[in-house]
């Protein structure tokens, strides 16, 4: 996507420059060629291909069915509480996850809209009052990551961060329940 963009950007700017430098051929391009070539032939295949790929990819990222491990993330101004399969609930802004398997995070909120986001692990999902949203994440290996609230939620929005501790699947199962794969 990045290289395609650089290419298209360069094309437009070069054409703009050529319009002034005036090599002969560019002034012989007919109006129809400009409109059909630049306006239709150039963008349509690019856009169709890109959108198609993005939709297929998007389908794969969706939480189809249910993963063995689901974790509930409950946001409130301005902290996070996480509940695990074994029935443990922990306040204190630390999320524990098993490595190497997809995990569904069910995101809810106590008050205003927040958003659950661990930039290193994937996209974000909003916590909407009255609704439960699900995002499927997978961490490749154990480690520490950072997550944060990505939807503006008032004065404490800056500090509404949480730590993500990814454990090996066995360690996670031992501590928080759920089946290791």
């Amino acid at each position: 996507m990045l290289f395609g963009s650089i290419l298209l950007f360069a094309l437009v700017m070069v054409l703009f420059a050529l319009a002034y430098i005036r090599t002969g051929w560019i002034s012989r391009i007919t109006p129809t060629q400009w409109i059909v070539g630049g306006g239709l032939v150039l963008p349509i295949p690019v856009l169709v291909l890109l959108t198609g790929t993005a939709l297929v990819l998007g389908e794969q990222l969706l939480p189809h069915g249910r993963t063995p491990v689901t974790i509930e993330a409950h946001a409130a101004r301005w902290n996070w509480t996480f509940s695990y399969p074994g029935g443990t609930t922990q306040a204190g802004d630390v999320l524990h996850m098993p490595a190497g398997q997809p995990v569904d995070i069910l995101v809810t909120t106590e008050d205003v809209i927040h958003a659950f986001w661990v930039p290193r692990l994937g996209g974000k999902i909003d916590a909407i009052p009255g609704h439960t949203n699900t995002i499927r994440l997978e961490a490749d290996r154990p480690g520490i990551y950072w997550g944060q609230c990505a939807e503006y939620c008032g004065i404490g929005h800056d500090i509404m961060r949480f730590r993500v501790e990814v454990h090996s699947a066995e360690d996670f199962a031992a501590r928080f329940g759920g089946e290791a794969r």
Binding site: V48, T51, L55, G58, E59, L62, P63, H64, T134
Partner: peptide, 14 residues
Amino acid sequence: VLTFFPATFASACI
């Protein structure tokens, strides 16, 4: 044709 095409395959409720 293009914008409504996803109606044929994309997940409708998730």
